[in-house]
Nucleic acid binder design. Sequence first.
DNA 1: CGACACCTTGAAGAGGTTCAAGAAATGTGG
DNA 2: CCACATTTCTTGAACCTCTTCAAGGTGTCG
Lengths: 227, 227
Amino acid sequence: MPMDLSIGDLGRLDELVATRRKIRRGAPLFSNGERFVALYAIRTGFFKTSIATEDGRDQVTGFQMAGEIIGLDGIVGDHHTCDATALEDAEVCVMPFERIEELSREVPALQSHVHKIMSREIVREHGVMLLLGSMRAEERLATFLLNLVQRLHARGFSQSELVLRMTREEIGSYLGLKLETVSRAFSKFAEEGLVEVKQRHVRIVDTDALRAVVASQEVGSTLKRCA
Amino acid sequence: MPMDLSIGDLGRLDELVATRRKIRRGAPLFSNGERFVALYAIRTGFFKTSIATEDGRDQVTGFQMAGEIIGLDGIVGDHHTCDATALEDAEVCVMPFERIEELSREVPALQSHVHKIMSREIVREHGVMLLLGSMRAEERLATFLLNLVQRLHARGFSQSELVLRMTREEIGSYLGLKLETVSRAFSKFAEEGLVEVKQRHVRIVDTDALRAVVASQEVGSTLKRCA
DNA sequence: CGACACCTTGAAGAGGTTCAAGAAATGTGG
DNA sequence: CCACATTTCTTGAACCTCTTCAAGGTGTCG
């Protein structure tokens, strides 16, 4: 997180992230309805956030990894409106939101940072809306894989290999598909030589071809330019 | 917008919303790629926000009406990442974001307000993800209508009557459906006596039945409780 | 090692899309 | 202010994608 800060400010920000909390795989970091008191910065591990409605619907709204912030949904109503679940043993920094607000009044760089984090989440969700609203199953899965591997690569992991921390069902929920459809799309990609899939181990063999899958549904370039 | 403020603070906030701008129907308030300088509070009129990709995809990400804030997407990257288009002649307050940040450092109530606005947008988008990821066409349209009429009612309009400011195609884009599907769903609702539809004029005849449409796809209550 | 959760694959079916045509409304220029 | 062009909306029929239901396989953890 690149912010230029004075030495004094740095010390005060340290205090903000002093409290740690460990969460076991499968355990909730917070749950819908729970009182909102803090944002969480993921230090290690992998989370999903999801909303469940009374009528039995369930939607995974995101997957979060080290360095990302969870809990922004709780600010507006003082209570969390989704569940955050650890998909592997994890550790987070507990950042009391009152302290964040106090400090960001005094440290403009922190204030700006907080605003950007929230704006980034809004923009990310726009992307998910685009995916859910306009892509076919294989385009969705390709987009998902490319996004995951890109975020992992930014954290020093491989550009082409990844271990999925979530089930097919969770992927499906996030992508608006049934788990069978996700599984079939994986098999199709494997068949065509785009990826190698062994359960949760995925190796991306042909990144460009995966990108082409996403852009395949083009209404634009190919057809439009002939008109 | 309920905030308790001192008289002095009130004056400074007035200054923030002093600049006005009128936008003609069909004209953009801002466009993708444009430099981000301000948030906009809608005074009158109706907007849509949408993202368009190079490959010809297009997704309406929201419809905004009086009292709502547009432009949050631009904070993270200093440039807007979507288009905001007036669906009828409109007027907005131009609120320079630098001034917002300055003032919210000095006025905690404003700071909190800004945070809540952004969090509310995140939560709203979670709801859209649920809709796009798990609902059938008629459930989506029913949800959409109920949401619209509820927001209009909060602004003093009728609980049961509304004039759509957007086309079937724009509704479809927002709901992840084709315009024909939207049209058919309207016709079905009309046939069943839930609504009366005459082009863009909609009268909701049976709100409870519309709510029942949304909850129809229950995996829960009806079936689960028999198990 | 055995139980359980997870994944894969097939076949049938449903819901939404696509393509097409016509009707209704809207707006524009004469 | 009316006529015409354009946009928007509706409806039908064929098609396609994804879902549903079902069965068997694979991996994992106590």
